[in-house]
Design a binder for these strands. Sequence first.
DNA 1: CCCCTAATAGTAGGAACCGACTATACGGTA
DNA 2: TACCGTATAGTCGGTTCCTACTATTAGGGG
Lengths: 213, 213
Amino acid sequence: MWMAQRKISNTLALAVLGLLREQPMHPYEMAATLRERHKDSSFKVNSGSLYDTVEALVRHGWIEPVETARDGRRPERTVYATTELGQGEFVRWIDELLRMPVAEYPKFRAAVSYLGALGPDRAAEALVERAGHLAQRIEETNTVLADTVGSGKVPRLFMIETECALHAWEAELAWTRRTIAEIRDGSLFWPKVEQTEQGWTWSAPTSPEGTTR
Amino acid sequence: MWMAQRKISNTLALAVLGLLREQPMHPYEMAATLRERHKDSSFKVNSGSLYDTVEALVRHGWIEPVETARDGRRPERTVYATTELGQGEFVRWIDELLRMPVAEYPKFRAAVSYLGALGPDRAAEALVERAGHLAQRIEETNTVLADTVGSGKVPRLFMIETECALHAWEAELAWTRRTIAEIRDGSLFWPKVEQTEQGWTWSAPTSPEGTTR
DNA sequence: CCCCTAATAGTAGGAACCGACTATACGGTA
DNA sequence: TACCGTATAGTCGGTTCCTACTATTAGGGG
């Protein structure tokens, strides 16, 4: 009926193209390399998806098989390399992803949409737990950065997405903590919702700026 | 081969459960209501997915059809309502999503991973464009907040996820601007990668703290 | 030297997801 | 009044994605 509305959308393909810029590889090796370099926190590396993605890239002519070897009686490995076309698209794709922010739908924001459903106490409690996990993740990531970039093993530019993630998590942590505080001191007013014949109404805050002050 | 490893995962189901807490509805009305309330920036409202999701919720017994009406010769509408079970799961699900941060893979971070591939000038240029779009989106969102919560039409708690998103975008904008500055003043060193017989090497920065100072 | 686990490499089947499409009704307008 | 665009309500079919599974080999402890 029609075709290929907009290239390949899974960013795992971006990772594949990036790796094949360095040297030809077989898919399993790609997955292993991505994990080694901690790129698996930026790309969802899933063996099933990986093989599908590689096939899609071949269909589009962005990469091509260069060799199928077999080591003993292990499964046959197909080694792929990029094409000129693939390298061009790689750069164009990165450029486009950087330039245009696209709508994303993080699970956390979905849950925050219905924060009200938990009631103030349970909501605050849940956010406290999240804050703890976030703080821990931030600390772990700082450790990773320290013994890769920090110790000069890897140039900073090669781990720049980790700094980006760190910044995002720190912001989320800050928002979470601020919101906990606002729930606790009552400055985030928690309306009581009631159904009347006219529809839904909610109680208004008793004073203009929050209840307590 | 087996079943239901982990309840329903699409957060659109959360939105459905949230809406049905207020009153029974048919799917089309859910979509319309979500858009009216600006919840479509937290949930990906797609008619295809919506009907699939509703069916899945029925299969799990979280919601149930209560009526199938027909208005003239328009398509038949099936109206759904939540069940006790559904309401319980709704709250438990929100609680879980809030407590445990899960790995997400935003497209931007994937692209940032390969920022190096663009070269410093093009990378900076792309980030500048993104910063512009982000600033605009932030402004628009502020406008939306102003004439919903700001004018007292809607309690702040009901739009809290918008504040959350705003905070995240502001952080991303800040990181983007800082990174642009670092690229421009040379403090984000851009190594030149070369392939030798030993593998890959990259030029080290000429002075301990960045090249220029 | 044998067993067990981890690593190696990939396959297969189904669920989830999404975009395009269908079909009717309604309101304005030329 | 004939036409056109938009709102209503939902269906359909294919791609994408992912979970579980298969099969082999290397390595290490007992």
